[in-house]
Design a protein around this nucleic acid. Structure first.
Lengths: 231, 231
DNA sequence: AAGTAATTGTGTCCGATGGACACAATAATG
DNA sequence: CATTATTGTGTCCATCGGACACAATTACTT
């Protein structure tokens, strides 16, 4: 499995030439997931767009789980190159880049959850994250925890703002807002503060990303200053 | 669907007595999910533990999606009663209670993602969250964004710390750490900061929850003070 | 009391899924 | 030329969510 993700295949000499490559399989799978959602990615479907049958895919990948892992790391890609910046700006653009990646491939939010083996690209993202924090005086554990908080925030904001192709419950953002509205109006006595908050809320938007990010960065800044770290 | 979640069924008069109830179905489903994971919850499996057949369940629920929604809101439960506290402590215990809920039913992390209709219990949690922030002078939108950040953090911490029954890739936390270790040792030149950070890291734990929570609360505190809010 | 209408439970059937497995075709090596 | 490792194919299976027709049950109406 590690070999699959990191591309360390022994390269056999005997036997017929492979008709496809792991990369080609992953690319097809990614394209399907991008356009029709992760649930539309089946072995049949993939094989249908390649000069092989379904079962041939199992020569390249032990199972669907592993295939999803490979395509995930590939779709995620590495973090884009950015000019060196002070830690706060560096971390902010890092978060924004990450957000963009998740909006470009929304299904990554489904496929990269829970305990899993990490691929080279995912590790590269982490590397860039902690790199931004090395000069702050935070300990290793604090650095890791910091980028974890930011990642969580970015992920969950992306999750609720992007619309999933396929698999979704078929709910528009409007549907949800409307249903919530009618409930809150008929049941407003049970949720007084919530109704009040939603009434004064502008009703949107991706300011949620900015807001949380600013709070977290403020909190980190405070900790760094308190520990006498430099920028 | 809203009727299902909020328990507003018209109660028919004609016809035979129902052999089971929606609540009973949900309870069985919850028990299965708790012990064997969400993927083990199938209509067959549920019916097997009830005096009905699989297809009879569809008299109580339009489809599996809706059933999962119902069992999710039920398992989540409402927020526990807590004495009134200043906003920071209130929000902290709120987050801890939420965390406990997710560790008690890890599958909630899978079932309550993306756009979905909100049940009474989920709304009750939100109500408690914003209630803690009403006296801070934050706007409605800011209050909602605040509890969203905290929820995200709690969720993702719970996600990586709890072990999923079934469905998991069968990876122990040790397996992951070990695989990561070997990769970082053979590939340490590609990830210098990351390897350094992981070397000085104590290797664990749920201090990740505390750390991120403290940063977020610090950031909120700063914003509140900046706006001249009172505690 | 008898019949009508609404509602519940059952059984059968379907398409799609991931995967096991045996087998034939292909290429490099001895 | 024969051996051997490797690739691709076809068949088969259990499981899943769900559609649908049909029988059984109960309350309401006449």
């Amino acid at each position: 499995m590690t070999e699959l993700l990191w591309g360390n295949q022994p390269a056999p000499s005997r036997g017929p030439k492979p008709a496809v490559t792991l990369a080609a399989i992953a690319e097809v799978a990614i394209r399907i997931a991008d356009t029709e959602g992760l649930d539309a990615v089946s072995m049949q479907r993939i094989a249908g767009e390649l000069p092989v049958t379904k079962m041939a895919l199992y020569r390249y990948v032990p199972g669907k789980t592993e295939l999803v892992a490979v395509m995930s790391d590939l779709a995620m890609g590495g973090p884009p190159d950015r000019p060196e910046l002070p830690w706060r700006e560096a971390l902010r653009t890092w978060a924004m880049d990450l957000y963009e990646g998740f909006t470009k491939h929304p299904w990554l939010l489904q496929s990269t959850i829970g305990r899993r083996l990490l691929g080279p690209n995912e590790l590269a993202w982490m590397e860039r994250g902690v790199a931004a924090l090395t000069s702050t005086g935070l300990s290793g554990g604090e650095q890791l925890d910091s980028i974890l908080v930011i990642t969580s925030h970015v992920r969950n904001i992306a999750q609720q703002s992007t619309t999933f192709p396929g698999h979704s419950t078929g709910l528009t953002e409007e549907d949800m807002q409307q249903a919530l509205g009618t409930i809150l109006s008929t049941e407003s006595d049970r949720f007084p503060h919530l109704t009040a908050a939603m009434r004064t809320s502008p009703g949107s938007e991706n300011q949620g990303l900015e807001f949380g990010l600013d709070r977290i960065l403020d909190g980190l800044d405070l900790l760094i200053q308190r520990q006498g770290g430099r920028t």
